[in-house]
Design a protein around this nucleic acid. Sequence first.
RNA 1: GGAGGGAUGCCUGAGUGGCCGAAAGGAACAGUUUGCUAAACUGUCGUACUGGCAACGGUACCGAGGGUUCGAAUCCCUCUUCCUCCGCCA
Length: 423
Amino acid sequence: MLQVNYIRENREKVLERLSVRNFKQPELVDEIIKFDEERRQTQTSLDNLSAIANASAKQVGELMRNGKKEEAELVKAETASNKESIKKLSDELAVVELHLYNALVQLPNLPGEQVPTGSTPEENEVVSLHGEPAQLHEKALPHWELTAKYDIIDFELGTKITGAGFPVYKGKGARLQRALINFFLDRATEAGYKEMQVPLMVNEASGFGTGQLPDKEGQMYHSTVDNLYLIPTAEVPVTNLYRDVILKEDDLPIKNTAYTPCFRREAGSYGAHVRGLNRLHQFDKVELVQVVHPDKSYETLEQMSAYVQSLLQELGLHYRVLRLCGGDMGFVAAMTYDMEVWSAAQQRWLEVSSVSNFEAYQTNRLKLRYKGATGKTQLAHTLNGSALALPRIVAAILENYQTEDGIKIPEVLVKYTGFDKID
RNA sequence: GGAGGGAUGCCUGAGUGGCCGAAAGGAACAGUUUGCUAAACUGUCGUACUGGCAACGGUACCGAGGGUUCGAAUCCCUCUUCCUCCGCCA
């Protein structure tokens, strides 16, 4: 959520930045300014009336104490009409505040300066390309056939016990999952991130805090009896650890990492591109979350991007880095890098990580601030990134490392898997 | 699941209808003193909205939301959460 004051004072700039996203409802900006104007007026009137009411109440108290009962009764009588106005105004205020809020949450974050204008994935900017595509033998298979051939991931079995998109990992497949999780967590710890283990279900307030609610309600599994949501990413619980918190400037930057399963309903997405591991309802991911000083967030974004790339390099995967164009970025992001690995068997790029700077968009809603040297509280900036999401990494490893007599395990993983080949 | 007791500022903790945005102590920060450390002394020490160039004001907030009242941290209702005891249990 953008800050109203900023919108009010930078209307032109806001509109200009939104156009980078190809945002379809620029009129929302003026609506917000109008609601804000209304809100402040109502607030002022209400405050004035409340001041009068407070004064009268004080007066009554004083008169009563001095035994001047009749005069007190007189003042009491006068307050009646004021009381009605106060009630009316505070109702009005609540309404206009709700309107303002509803409009504000519909406004996406403003793209950063470097974000290219555009509305489709084709307009994303390829920042860099690393490594070489794997050279596969003639009988190379896509991963969903490899998993069946070596009996390491069973999609049908998952369908039986739960439904489509809930695979069962078996034997070396399960072991590979655990190896990757440990590898990612170890590397993150080495890079200075603190490992956290967080709940996999969150309450409504947390959903609001990171922006999944109210909009993307349909993306999350919802336990209605308890009104809890299964997390779509560790970003939600980890970032919400800092909801309603005022940090000391010295506490920054905060670097957290967490492994969690992620649950996504992904309603209505079935087809060729979501086969096998490409898109699941439940998958594993190691996430990075940082809370940083506003002056440092873009620098941090570069560092996080470099860190994620170092993982891909260690795994020996051919990958590229994209800077998403305005229209392809998530609603809350100010700038996003996507990392995509090449799937030689599917002959296409698979998104395995997304690293974003949210600037103050999340922290404004989270009320996550820090107190600077001057004693002034300011909104911190948040960033997060996947490091990494497992399924597509597994898909890429299986496909790119396949040989005619089995699948090789990347060198760095062997000490975690305890085997160097799946056959 | 049953019974009872709590939730106040960074922390401890006072406050049972007006003089309370809130005592006191501690912590922290700044200054004075000081050979150094410590101590002592003085001051600062919640958040948000809002008016004002500013000085300085107004309003709201004592777990959350409603209610009673001229007036609520204080009384009533609902919810959340913590603690103690009992029951159950990986």
